[in-house]
Structure formats: C-alpha cells, structure tokens
Design a protein around this nucleic acid. Structure first.
Lengths: 155, 155
DNA sequence: ATAATTGCAAAGCGTTTGCACCCTG
DNA sequence: CAGGGTGCAAACGCTTTGCAATTAT
C-alpha cells in the first residue's frame, strides 16, 4: 500500500533534476541553454499550469537572469516540440504545463487551479463513429474538464 | 429523399428571420437593439465560426452602422447568456458560432474552417468514471475536434 | 568560427474602457 | 425623462519582433 502510494507519487511528479530536464530538451532537439533549463525547471516545480508572465515574474523575483521574450520563445518552442502542454481554458493568455508524454487530457480544478492528467484516452473509437456518420474524419481533439479536485472537495 | 435533404438543411441552418432572432434575444433577456440584431444576423449567416473583428469588417463593408466595441460587447453578452457558442481552438482570438441550444461539441474542419455540431454528448458517464477514480468531480467539459469535413475530403 | 540564442525596447494586435451622445421604453 | 446602449478613441495586456550583443557547439 505504502509502496503503491510512493510509486504513484513518483510517477505523477515530473522529475525535476537538471540532468533529466536537460535530457528532455536534447531528446526534443532543443539546445539546452541556461535560460531554457531555468524555464523548464520552473515549470516542473508547478502544481498548476503557468503563463509565460507568471514564470517570468517568478524567475525574476528569484534573481534569475532571463528576459520575458526568452520565456515566451522557450515556451512556444517547447510546446511545438511537445515537451510541454498548452492549455486553452484561459481565453486571453496561454497556460503551459509540464506533462508526461503521450496523448492525454486535463482535469482542471476550478477552485485551486491544480491540473491533473487524465491518461489513457479511449475516446477515439467513439469519436470516429460519431464524426464518421457525418463524413468527418477527426485528426486531433482536445478535451478539457473543469471540476473540483479531491482536496478542494474535502474542504 | 428530396424531403429528407430539405429537412436536414432546414434543421442545420439556424433560422435567420428577424422575428426569430429577435425572439432569441428577448428570451435571453437581451434588449433587441438594431445593432444586436445585425450582429446576430451576421452570425446566423455564417457557415464557419467568426471573430468579432470579422463580423465588424463584414458589417461595415455592407454599409451597416455599428461600432467595433459594440460588436465585442454584443458577442460577449450573447455568449454569457448562452445565445452563441464560444470556440477556443484559436489561441489569440475568440471565435463565435450561433448554435442550437443544449450541450454539444464541435467538429472544426482544418481545411475550410466550417464548424459542425456534434450533438448528443454521451461522454459524462465515461468522464465521471475516469475522473472519479481520482476523487475529481467534473462540473463541465469542452471537447473540440479538428479534422477534415466531408466536402474537403472529397477534393 | 559560426550559427543559434538572448535581452531590450518598440511595435503589434485583439480586446476593454471612459465618456459624451443617443435611443428606447 | 431615466437608464441602458452606442460610438469613438484612448488605454490595456499579452505576445511578437528587430537588432546588436552574447553564447553554445
């Protein structure tokens, strides 16, 4: 039981050691500069999703030397290379989240804004059937679920 | 056959007669001004979704007297009152669509940007099960499907 | 050495807002 | 006539871009 819990925690929290993050970058063909590592590390430390501005502010407060433009450029590059996820639930600004690889969806808590991954999406068969009857062939889909997480429900 | 087609067309194209649109507004508790009717009519005439700027440009080109701010204010009000749907698939600007009432999702064609409604969403049971195992209680969800519509697939 | 990356400040762009005027009820 | 609605232009907030200096391979 304790082991299961521990494993679950290990699996759910992205590894934020420098080497692992560096590896994530080079695997994606992204040159691992000091700034990019810094941004990625900040994102890895987040429970919630974060905007470019939030990450920038957090890093500057901490005394890190990064430019706002670099944060934007980094996040957009990482999102393009599928190192980070882009969430659409906020209309005016883009939110980013460091997630596990592979297709999945997100549970966003409306109370504390914590983001959980909803792995293993078996929506495709249903989707293909529903859309197919209209001659529509799906190539991609995004599902965002808003609700209350376990923690917030308790209080 | 002809009858079926006709009925399908009637059902799929929102009624854009002034009286019907006027009714939609008052039912939503929105005062039916000339500008609001104009915006709603423009939206009803769209096959695709449309941004505030697009609708504004279209109306001005047609010689209609509306301000850009009014278009923004109208669309946001109508979206709030659930007269129109708001699509999130475009990151930088908000797209609007006049849809049939009730919970549904959207099929967006990546080629021609036509938007089709995916009625009858029986996702909830699946969602409750998937999220529930994490203690997460969904309150709402949005699903956006991108793909190729029948017309574009043919060419 | 060479090409990519960064920082800054300026520009861009979609959207919102203040306010005087106008209309509708 | 009272109160919401409108138009214009200015203000806003997020994001991108031009360019010279810097850094990684």
């Amino acid at each position: 039981m304790t082991l299961n819990l521990t494993m679950a925690i290990i699996r759910s929290v992205p590894d934020s050691s420098d080497t692992k993050l560096r590896l994530r970058l080079s695997r994606a063909g992204v040159r691992p500069t000091r700034q990019r590592l810094t941004v990625l590390k900040a994102l890895a430390a987040e429970q919630h999703d974060a905007t470019a501005q939030e990450i920038y502010a957090r890093l500057r407060r901490r005394g890190e030397r990064v430019g706002l433009a670099t944060v934007y450029r980094t996040l957009s590059l990482l999102s393009e290379r599928e190192v980070v996820d882009e969430l659409a639930h906020h209309p005016t600004e883009t939110c980013y989240r460091l997630c596990s690889p592979g297709h999945h969806h997100h549970l966003v808590c409306s109370e504390c804004h914590r983001v959980e991954e909803l792995g293993s999406c078996d929506l495709e068969p249903w989707l293909d059937r529903a859309a197919g009857s209209r001659g529509f062939v799906p190539t991609s889909h995004t599902l965002e679920v808003v609700g209350l997480c376990a923690g917030c429900r308790a209080s």
